Computed example of a mutant assay.
Amino acid sequence: MVGGVDQTADDWRHRAACGKHPNPDMWFSRNLHSAATKEAKRICWGCPVQRDCGDDAIRHNIRAGVAGGYHTRFAGEWAQLHIWLGRKPPEKQSGAHEPRSIVCAQCRSEFQTRRQNTVTRCPPCEQGLVDAAPVRKHVERVHAETGWSYREIAQRAGLSKNVVGSLMTRQQYINRKTAELLRAVRPDLLTDAA
């Protein structure tokens, strides 16, 4: 992993396979099992400076992506990198992953997280999701007031009938944009000719 570090002519980073790769972002995937992470690791394991890269990650405590063939963001992989380099694995920090309560900066709901970085939003808000219950109630009200089928409501919102079908049966969260489109379907604003 070479991103963001000044390089001198004799620096090992000049020989790193990732430095020549057209997609350096692969080394910074946040998903341990993504195709990008797997490909980055494969390239690392054939890199002539793999050990130098791993040593550098440990020395500078770089925990942001793949280094030396291991994804340093994940504790298990971080420990494996230490072992592979013949070093003592890092000790688990007590309380490092204890759950803590946080109030979401966006929806103001309280949620639990084990993440130790600067989490400010709950997982649904981070993913652009909203609570499906109020949207479900709105669709039920429109259905009751107009007699429109769920399929007709979906069509009026410009959505697939499957989206409304899933909303009505099982979803806890719904995409924010989808929710806005469904809430815009109001019998007092639309004519039956729509």
Results as ranks from 00 to 15, higher is better:
112 Q>F: 10
135 V>Y: 00
66 V>T: 09
27 W>V: 04
135 V>Q: 01
156 R>E: 01
90 P>G: 02
63 R>N: 09
18 C>A: 13
113 T>I: 09
73 R>L: 15
129 L>A: 08
40 A>R: 03
53 C>K: 01
83 I>D: 03
38 K>R: 12
156 R>Q: 01
26 M>E: 05
37 T>L: 02
130 V>T: 12
80 Q>N: 15
63 R>C: 05
47 C>T: 06
58 I>Q: 09
117 N>R: 09
35 A>K: 15
42 R>G: 02
125 C>M: 05
158 G>M: 11
133 A>M: 11
129 L>T: 06
132 A>L: 04
116 Q>G: 15
34 S>Y: 08
78 W>I: 00
116 Q>S: 15
72 T>R: 10
53 C>D: 01
30 R>I: 04
101 S>G: 07
87 R>G: 12
121 R>L: 13
77 E>T: 01
44 C>N: 05
61 N>Y: 15
26 M>G: 01
29 S>W: 01
39 E>C: 02
102 I>M: 10
142 V>G: 06
23 N>A: 14
33 H>P: 00
70 Y>W: 14
22 P>W: 09
104 C>R: 06
136 R>W: 06
145 E>M: 09
128 G>K: 08
83 I>F: 07
45 W>Q: 12
54 G>Y: 04
33 H>A: 13
36 A>W: 10
105 A>F: 07
149 S>W: 05
47 C>E: 04
146 T>I: 04
64 A>P: 00
147 G>Q: 02
107 C>V: 11
69 G>S: 01
147 G>H: 07
97 H>F: 14
84 W>H: 11
67 A>G: 07
130 V>F: 08
118 T>Y: 06
143 H>F: 04
97 H>S: 11
66 V>R: 02
77 E>C: 04
89 P>G: 05
58 I>L: 15
74 F>S: 12
26 M>A: 05
44 C>L: 11
115 R>T: 13
50 Q>C: 10
157 A>K: 00
74 F>E: 00
77 E>K: 13
79 A>C: 04
96 A>N: 03
28 F>M: 04
127 Q>V: 04
82 H>T: 03
63 R>E: 03
128 G>F: 00
63 R>H: 12
158 G>R: 05
111 F>L: 05
31 N>K: 14
131 D>S: 01
